[in-house]
């Protein structure tokens, strides 16, 4: 079970790193159409920042910051954004994910609409990848046993 780390160096470095790491991940997602990266890569970095926080500050701290319900919500929301934009293009008379059709709604020319559509899709991909990545890491690390369950059953392990 992942508990609080008692290593001061790792803890402090993680404490200072994590905000910048998260901002960098959002930068990678948002600038996917200019520079390398995109939704998937940014989502992985965001998930990695969550994993770093989990390793160093423990499960309770992370749960206070980002509850599991919100994580599931983000994951589903990403899929919804992706499929929604695709279906919107389908409804507007183009192919699935044919972004240039969005120019009718957004009121800009086709090239700009394509850029904005890609941005939206990448946002959705990034959220989903972050949530799923973090969930996989968390499930593997705990072996499916949540700290709440352990506490309820009264067999809390010592801090590691």
């Amino acid at each position: 079970m992942i508990g609080k780390s008692d290593d001061i160096i790792i803890k402090t470095i993680a404490r200072i790193f994590v905000p910048f790491l998260q901002l960098y991940a959002l930068y990678v997602i948002m600038h996917g159409h200019y520079s390398p990266g995109g939704g998937f890569q940014g989502g992985v970095i965001l998930g990695a920042s969550m994993a770093l926080l989990l390793i160093t500050h423990g499960y309770d701290e992370l749960k206070r910051r980002l509850p599991e319900g919100v994580l599931l919500l983000l994951g589903s929301l990403g899929v919804l954004i992706y499929a929604g934009i695709g279906l919107l293009c389908l409804i507007l008379g183009g192919n699935y994910l044919d972004y240039s059709q969005l120019s009718v709604i957004l009121g800009v020319d086709a090239a700009h609409a394509r850029s904005l559509g890609i941005l939206g899709v990448e946002l959705g991909v990034g959220f989903t990848v972050m949530a799923i990545m973090y969930s996989i890491f968390f499930d593997i690390s705990t072996g499916g046993i949540l700290p709440e369950d352990q506490r309820r059953e009264g067999r809390v392990e010592g801090e590691r």
């Binding site: 790491l21 960098y24 990678v28 520079s35 390398p36 990266g37 890569q41 992985v44 970095i45 990695a48």
Partner: peptide
């Protein structure tokens, strides 16, 4: 430089 930063962080 973006790629290398990601590499370092990961």
């Amino acid at each position: 430089i973006d790629i290398s930063m990601v590499y370092a962080l990961l």
